[in-house]
């Protein structure tokens, strides 16, 4: 049981990173992604193309590479005399990456709303912003919840990528203990920890979906 004496405190410590990265990413990338989706759909070609390129890069390269690029990349350009700290790099990479994925989901969701909704709002004298916030967005959120939920669950597991910058998350904790005691048990244990987190999130996501099920 020596294993657990070491494993449990280390897991708790690691979970702080796992959950911290998860929450910070979600809190920033969801609102940002709605803005990015609108920019991607802008009538201004330049804005739409720049946003499109950003999304293409973020979805077209591994998050692991983006983490390395943002953290180590700047060390290789000494002229700037500037580099991100580990946690800064982690938050920037995760937020940029997940904003791109969420933005594509929101873009699809916004496109799926009948133009009649905007036209009715126009004829009723509602402003564009008000129409988006009160008429379009609530319907979009209902439609995109299942896809957002998928990404949220992927995000929990993606947080383990922070090991590449030498930051200890829950999975890294298991690995250390496993190496110290030459046992596989920590991996099994951490697998269950992930499952518990996912079960909890699935429940929350289900509740959110239910809150939108009052209409069809």
């Amino acid at each position: 049981m020596k294993v657990f004496e070491m494993l449990i405190p280390m897991t708790i410590e690691g979970l702080k990173t796992t959950i911290g990265v998860f929450l910070v990413t979600l809190i920033f990338s969801i609102p940002l992604s709605i803005i990015v989706a609108k920019l991607r759909m802008s009538k201004n070609k330049a804005i739409a193309n720049i946003t499109g390129t950003y999304i293409y890069i973020m979805r077209g390269t591994p998050l692991l590479l983006q983490l390395m690029f943002i953290f180590f990349g700047f060390h290789f350009v000494p002229v700037i005399g500037f580099a991100f700290g580990r946690y800064q790099a982690i938050f920037i990479a995760f937020i940029l990456n997940y904003t791109a994925y969420f933005a594509e989901i929101f873009r699809g969701g916004i496109n799926s709303i009948d133009v009649g909704q905007v036209e009715a709002s126009t004829v009723l004298g509602l402003s564009k912003t008000f129409t988006f916030m009160k008429v379009i967005l609530p319907q979009v959120i209902k439609n995109v919840m299942p896809s957002i939920g998928n990404e949220v669950i992927t995000l929990v597991k993606d947080t383990s990528l922070v090991y590449i910058l030498g930051v200890a998350d829950a999975l890294k904790a298991a690995k250390s203990v496993s190496n110290t005691y030459s046992t596989f048990i920590p991996y099994i244990f951490i697998g269950f920890v992930y499952l518990v987190i996912i079960a909890f999130l699935t429940k929350i996501l289900g509740n959110v979906e239910k809150r939108f099920s009052y209409y069809r």
Partner: peptide, 21 residues
């Protein structure tokens, strides 16, 4: 096609614009 707002009940549909204005 009427274009009612599906996420609002009848009263909310009626009152949205006048409340905004």
């Amino acid at each position: 096609s009427f274009n009612l707002f599906p996420h609002m009940n009848v009263l909310e549909n009626l009152m949205l614009a006048p409340n905004f204005l």
